[in-house]
């Protein structure tokens, strides 16, 4: 049962990390990976169109509309056409990205909440570990085995809750320490600079 204990810990850490990093960042990362692995056929087209539009914009800015009206108008026409095309391509990319993101969200839910719920349901009758007899009063024993683990053991639900609290605390402490370090460094930098001046 040690492995189940560890699985719960790892799962909790992963869940917490994901929520700290944030869904958009993870979606972004997954999207980049996905497009790297399975390049979308419109991607290179969009890229080419974008550079073409930029090129045409530059050309348009470099052409005098008063002195070379015909040339200017022709560039303008192609530019307008390309912009419309680019918008269409971008729209298809956007929709494919949106559908990918909804799938990624589903996947995220499954590997965090889904697995946890499944484990809590499946192993609800399994004792995670046994408490030595007589360590705690029976009322608390009853609480620790809540809801369905045998009396005198710790249930998976209680264990997950405890692990969740600890991981959240550790993360918060880490974040706080990080912030303090950053502030101290920020204070140190000007001091160093001043010190350098004095030496000079």
């Amino acid at each position: 049962m040690v492995s189940l204990l560890l699985v719960v810990v790892i799962l909790t850490i992963v869940t917490n990390l994901i929520s700290t990093v944030g869904a958009p960042a993870i979606n972004n990362l997954l999207w980049n990976l996905y497009t790297r692995l399975i390049p979308s056929p419109v991607m290179p087209k969009a890229k080419a169109l974008r550079s073409e539009v930029l090129q045409l914009r530059k050309e348009l800015a470099g052409t005098s509309s008063q002195d070379e009206f015909a040339k200017w108008a022709k560039i303008r026409r192609t530019l307008d056409k390309k912009v419309v095309e680019l918008e269409a391509v971008n729209a298809t990319l956007q929709t494919s990205r949106a559908s990918f993101e909804s799938r990624a969200g589903m996947f995220r839910w499954v590997i965090t909440v889904g697995i946890r719920m499944f484990l809590q349901f499946w192993f609800s009758r399994h004792p995670m570990f046994w408490l030595p007899q007589g360590w705690v009063p029976s009322v608390i024993e009853w609480g620790l085995c809540f809801p369905r683990a045998p009396m005198g053991s710790v249930s998976i639900n209680v264990w997950s809750f405890a692990v969740g609290q600890v991981v959240a605390l550790v993360l918060a402490a880490g974040a706080w320490a990080w912030q303090i370090v950053g502030e101290v460094r920020g204070k140190m930098a000007p001091m160093k600079a001043q010190g350098g001046k004095k030496e000079l």
Binding site: D67, E68, F69, A70, A73, K74
Partner: peptide, 10 residues
């Protein structure tokens, strides 16, 4: 004349 030429070209 300048603009006429442009018109004819365009």
């Amino acid at each position: 004349k300048k603009y006429l030429e442009q018109i004819e070209e365009l």
